[in-house]
Design a protein around this nucleic acid. Structure first.
Length: 266
DNA sequence: AGTACCACCTGACGGC
DNA sequence: TGCCGTCAGGTGGTAC
């Protein structure tokens, strides 16, 4: 699930549930999700502290632990995941991999069925993004920077949009949506797109991400003009009902409209 | 630089 | 009902 809009929703959810509450307990149920931090270290970083604020960079949620302490909890959800805030420990969600207990008796769970997610501790969101080599966040990057970062890349439009080192936050679903709305075929090499088309990609990307955040990732709530509700076997182009086609790019499935997404991207 | 392929995990779903 | 292959919105490493 989690691409930028989903992760933004998790961030807002954490803000609404878990700020400014003293942390009592830290229960790591799947140690393999911890990245370069031990369970004991995580516990000592969190116990007795409280979450102060949140940030998001691409698909990562960063949570500030105490003000000005230069300690941030960083979460990535992999392909499956969410946060769950609940009161009774008997109601703990299935696949809760990290449970943080607060003094008010409530818990925040990092839910991650496939364990592809990660939990890390960093000095700051910027330091973490730098260490990971992440590009700028897809919702923060300006038009000129976006156009410049696409540069003269020869890779396909889709894999480039999904490359977290180019820009952070776009995954398989939203890459398909952005390319559909700009009329660009997923395999079009980036260096075949003229400047106008790159600028359009940027503005469509912003619109798509903002819309997705607004509908809180419920596919059925997307506008009918979007590809996403049709992104399944038998789906058709929302413009004129042309059956969608699929292709594989590095093992990821791309859905696209053969009528409205030309190779040239013009 | 770009792409393909595998690995990491778990569960849902369709076919037989 | 049960088994099996396939697929799922991510990322990192390797090999070419």
């Amino acid at each position: 699930m989690p691409e930028l809009p989903d992760v933004e929703y998790f961030r807002i959810y954490l803000d609404a549930t878990s700020l400014h509450k003293t942390i009592d307990t830290v229960d790591v149920r799947a140690p393999r999700i911890l990245e370069e931090v031990t369970e004991a270290q995580l516990r000592s970083v969190l116990a007795g502290r409280s979450f102060q604020s949140t940030r998001r960079h691409g698909k990562y949620v960063c949570v500030e632990i105490d003000a000005g302490a230069e300690k941030w909890l960083v979460m990535h959800f992999g392909m499956t995941g969410r946060l769950a805030y609940f009161k009774d420990i008997g109601d703990d969600p299935k696949h809760g991999r990290l449970l943080i207990g607060f003094e008010n008796g409530y818990f925040l769970a990092f839910v991650n069925q496939r364990k592809f997610g990660h939990i890390a501790v960093a000095g700051s969101p910027e330091a973490f993004a730098e260490a990971k080599g992440l590009g700028p966040d897809a919702l923060s990057i300006g038009r000129e920077d976006f156009v410049a970062r696409l540069g003269k890349r020869r890779g396909s439009a889709k894999t480039t949009l999904m490359n977290q080192k180019v820009l952070a936050g776009i995954g398989n679903i939203y890459a398909d949506e952005i390319l559909f709305q700009t009329g660009v075929h997923p395999k079009t090499p980036v260096n075949a797109l003229d400047e106008d088309m790159r600028e359009r990609l940027h503005s469509v990307m912003e619109d798509v991400l903002h819309t997705a955040i607004a509908v809180m990732r419920r596919h059925e709530d997307f506008p009918e003009s979007f590809l996403i509700p049709q992104r399944h076997e038998g789906g058709v182009c929302p413009l004129d009902g042309t059956p969608l086609e699929t292709l594989e790019l590095s093992g990821r499935k791309a859905y696209f409209c053969p009528e409205h997404q030309s190779h040239e991207g013009t």
